[in-house]
Computed example of a mutant assay.
Amino acid sequence: MRVLLVEDDVRVARINRDLLERDPDVHVVGSAASCAQGDALAQALSPDLILLDVHLPDGSGLGLLRHWRAQGRTTDVALITAADDEPSIRLALAHGAFDYLIKPFTGARLAELLARHRARRPSGAGSGAPGRHDQASLDRLLGVSGAAAPALPRGIDPHTLERVEAALAERGQPASAEEIGEAVGLSRVTAWRYLEHLVRAGQAELDHQYGLAGRPAKLYRARPGEV
C-alpha cells in the first residue's frame, strides 16, 4: 500500500509515518507540507491512499480534495485533522473522503482506516484491468454490511470487535489477550472472548507458546489476508 501524507507539522508527519509503517504492507512514498506540494506529489507518485490535513499554510485540504475530484482523480483520500466542525466533516464526505480521523487519534483507529482502505480496493488492483463488480464486492467497496450479514453472538459488540481486530492487525505479531486488552482498553477476559470469536470466525489464528513449565500461553495473530 503506497501512502502519501499531506501534513504541515513535521513532527506530526513523522509520528504518522512511524505509525503507518508498523504495518509491513504500508510504504509512505511521500510527505507534503502544503496544498501545492500535495498536488504535485499526488500527480507524480500516484499513491494508493492519501492522508490529508485540512489546515495547510497555502489553503485548505478540503479545497485540494475538491480539486482532485474535479480532475477525475479517484484515489482513496482520508482526512487526518484537528478540524472537528461539522461543516468540514460534511464537505470532506461530500467530496468523496472515505474516512475522517480527528486528532488526536489512536493507533487502533488508524489501523481501522487502513483496513477499510484494503477492503475498498478492487480485487484486480494493480493489474491495469478495469474490473467489474457483483453486488457483494460492490457492497464491500461501499462499506455496506447488508441485511444478510451473520448475526454476532450475544455479548459481542460490533464496534468493539472492530477495535480488537484492528489492534491485532496493528501488532503484526502474535499477541496475548492481556496485550490486546491493554491496547484496546478491555479486561483480559473480555479481550479473550473477542479474540476467541475471531478465531472461530476464521479472522484470526491461535498459536500456543510453550514454556518450561505450566500450561502453554495462548497467543493470537491476524489471519494472513485479513484486515
Rank of each mutant, 00 (worst) to 15 (best):
A213D: 09
A32P: 07
G225P: 02
D39A: 14
R14V: 03
A201K: 07
R188W: 05
G185P: 02
V26Y: 03
A217D: 14
D23Q: 11
A167S: 10
H197F: 15
L198P: 05
I80K: 00
A136T: 07
A222Y: 10
S145Q: 13
L5I: 11
A83E: 10
D157L: 04
R193V: 08
R140C: 00
G202A: 03
S176F: 02
G128P: 02
R223E: 04
P104R: 03
V3I: 06
A70C: 05
D157N: 15
S34G: 08
A183Y: 06
H117S: 08
L110D: 00
R118N: 10
Y210M: 11
E7R: 06
R17A: 06
G155V: 09
G172A: 13
A213E: 15
A147K: 13
A222N: 04
D58R: 06
V26M: 09
R109W: 00
A92T: 02
G214A: 08
N16H: 14
E179M: 03
G143V: 03
I102C: 04
L56Q: 05
V184C: 04
K218Y: 12
V3M: 00
Q203G: 10
D23W: 07
L64G: 07
S60N: 02
A78M: 02
Q37H: 10
M1R: 11
A149G: 02
S176W: 03
L49I: 10
D9Q: 15
I180S: 06
A147E: 13
V6Y: 00
V3R: 06
S187K: 11
A183N: 02
K103I: 04
S187A: 08
P224D: 12
A97F: 01
L62Y: 05
L20D: 09
R163A: 14
R163F: 04
A147T: 14
G59R: 09
G225C: 12
S60F: 04
E179R: 12
L212G: 15
A33F: 08
A70N: 13
V54T: 02
I89K: 14
D25G: 08
D134E: 09
R22C: 09
Q43Y: 11
H55Q: 12
D84E: 10
D39V: 13
G202S: 08
A129H: 11
V189Q: 15
D18R: 12
E226C: 09
R154F: 15
D9M: 13
D48H: 15
R215M: 05
E112Q: 12
A201L: 06
L91H: 07
R121S: 12
A94R: 06
S88Q: 01
D18M: 15
P150I: 07
W68G: 03
A149K: 07
A42L: 12
E112W: 01
L45Q: 11
L219H: 14
S187E: 09
Y100C: 01
H55W: 13
V29A: 12
L110P: 00
G143D: 06
D207S: 13
L79G: 02
R140T: 05
E205V: 12
V77N: 03
V12P: 01
V12K: 01
L161K: 04
L114Y: 09
G131Y: 08
P174I: 06
D8R: 11
T74M: 00
A201H: 07
V54I: 15
P130M: 04
V28Q: 00
G126Y: 10
L206H: 10
L110T: 00
G30I: 05
R171S: 14
T74L: 15
L114E: 03
G124Y: 13
A36K: 14
L186C: 10
N16A: 12
R221A: 13
Q209T: 11
I180F: 00
V164S: 01
